[in-house]
Design a protein around this nucleic acid. Structure first.
Length: 478
RNA sequence: GGCCCCGUCGUCCAGCGGUCUAGGACGCCGGCCUUUCAAGCCGGUAACGCGGGUUCGAAUCCCGUCGGGGCUACCA
């Protein structure tokens, strides 16, 4: 069978990580099967749709490396792949369904429908139980699909197995609104049929709608696609992932400096695994091993901690130092709020290997090396009070004296001078070096000291040591 | 309320009747290393929701129960 799968995001918001994962699974399946991956834009809700969101969605997919073979932006034999261009087609399908007796016009008002629902609920029935084809049929209003009450709707979900829905719990759903626009059910199913979609792989939230889609496709005279419902993504509280759980837009992760490779890897692990042992894997490995039927049935909680770990892992083991520096640069400049001069860039490159193993996301880089790019550091008071003890003044004075004497301002020479100081003063590295670190970087946490001083340069290093010594003297009092 | 889905460490995933004294990863805890912080290495903590069956034997099959979640619009 020729596999043709699609994702059909609605451009009513930024690309959500849940949708990104659904796209990823569709892509993996298509690539594994040598099939076609299609991106269609479900913008039937014209009022809420916007080009900005569409751009964000497509950009997000490209960023993740999910290339598509047909659809918006790349074309194909089925037009624009945008539902707003196909309203005539949907209306035509809806009318044909009425013609064939599969659907009917309904002009009952909302109050009447509410009453019918309330009555069904009172009787412990499905809310749509009484909303069926009326005796006296209308000629205007919405068009409802008429669910045959003769037999259950059954299908085999690739992930979940046999599904059975008795017809009384499937309501006569609206397919065309009274203003002539299609509902999601109609538009989506029509497109799936028209585009020859073989497998619909989507979130479990659509499982209850599946019998409707199946019935619709059959009424249209088509062979329905095979369905596979992915487990949902939850927030830490066990509820469907949403804004209140923090960042749900893929762009937030992109902007924070997560690597697309890491995001891809992490998302693939939410509901699937390569094997029992492997955690880190690339696109090719995933494509080779992917199997839709082995996707997990239970919902997955989106765990930011594990994502952070994985991103750090990718940063330090999958990137060369040069790649790291290059990819970090825009994040660094954003964090600093300005572009780097050539000399400043050189300073960063010198420290890059040390920074590389200390960040989880690229946006963290700015905090690590900010001390290189400010005229005067701001002291972190907690660091200062923790490190500046009696005797620290001596350390700063000695460090100043010895560093002033360093001939070539390089890491080795700096280290040699300071190690000699530690030996002469007979103090430990921690006690002797931490005051220098705080004096020069403003914080007790920084990249390794000797390299940091080398990157900072002699003048600024000495100036900062003097300033810290003065501050210390001033606070110590007479 | 109705219908549906799900139920293995705190979290993600492995397990598909015996090899499970349940495996990997994150997290957490401890140790080593160490100029801070990381990283790295070593070790540890921690789960089959519960109750019945079926079977010589069940995390694995069945039933029930409890718990969690989803859907229930002229949103998608």
């Amino acid at each position: 069978m020729t596999v043709r799968v699609r994702i059909a995001p609605s451009p009513t918001g930024f690309l959500h990580v849940g949708n990104a994962r659904a796209a990823l699974f569709n892509w993996l399946f298509a690539r594994h099967e040598g099939g076609t991956f299609i991106v269609r834009i479900d913008d039937t809700d014209v009022a809420r749709s916007s080009p900005e969101f569409e751009e964000d969605i497509l950009g997000g997919l490209r960023w993740l490396g999910l290339d598509w073979d047909e659809g918006v932006g790349v074309g194909g034999p089925h037009g624009t792949y945008r539902q707003s261009d196909r309203f005539d087609r949907y209306r035509e399908v809806a009318e044909a369904l009425v013609e064939a007796g599969h659907a009917y016009y309904d002009d009952r008002d909302p109050a009447e429908l509410d009453e019918l629902r309330a009555r069904a609920q009172r009787e412990g029935r499905h809310p749509g139980f009484y909303i069926r084809r009326p005796e006296r049929e209308a000629t205007a209003g919405v068009i409802r699909f008429s669910v045959p009450q003769t037999r259950p709707v059954t299908f085999t979900d690739v992930i979940r197995g046999e599904m059975v829905f008795t017809p009384d719990v499937i309501d006569d759903f609206v397919i065309l609104r009274s203003d002539g626009t299609p509902t999601y059910h109609l538009a989506s199913t029509t497109d799936d049929v028209d585009y020859g979609i073989s497998h619909v792989v989507r979130g479990e939230d659509l499982l209850p709608s599946t019998p409707k889609h199946l019935l619709l496709a059959q009424a249209m005279g088509a062979e329905p696609p095979i369905y596979a419902h992915l487990p949902l993504l939850f927030g830490p509280d066990g509820k469907k992932l949403s804004k209140r759980h923090g960042d749900t837009a893929l762009r937030a992760y992109r902007e924070a400096g997560y690597l697309p490779e890491a995001m891809f890897n992490y998302l693939a692990l939410l509901g699937w695994s390569l094997d029992a042992e492997t955690t880190i894997f690339g696109r090719e490995e995933a494509v080779a091993a992917f199997d839709l039927a082995s996707v997990s049935k239970n919902p997955a909680i989106f765990d930011r901690d594990k994502l952070d770990w994985m991103n750090g892992e990718y940063i330090r083991t999958r990137l060369s130092t040069e790649e790291f520096a290059d990819r970090a640069r825009p994040f660094l400049e954003t964090g600093l709020g300005r572009r780097l001069t050539d000399a400043e860039w050189e300073a960063f490159v010198a420290l890059a290997p040390l920074v590389q193993e200390r960040v989880k996301v690229l946006a963290d880089v700015a905090d690590q090396v900010r001390f290189l790019y400010v005229e005067e550091v701001e002291y972190d008071e907690r660091s200062w009070s923790k490190v500046m003890k009696p005797g620290s003044e001596t350390v700063l004075t000695e460090a100043l004296r010895r560093l002033e004497a360093v001939e070539a301002w390089e890491t080795d020479a700096i280290e040699a001078a300071l190690r000699q100081m530690l030996a002469d003063l007979e103090i430990g590295a921690s006690k002797g070096l931490q005051p220098i670190r705080v004096a020069v970087t403003g914080s007790s946490v920084s990249p390794p000291l000797f390299e940091s001083l080398a990157a900072l340069g002699r003048d600024r290093t000495l100036r900062r040591l003097r300033r810290a010594r003065e501050r210390l003297a001033a606070s110590a009092g007479p």
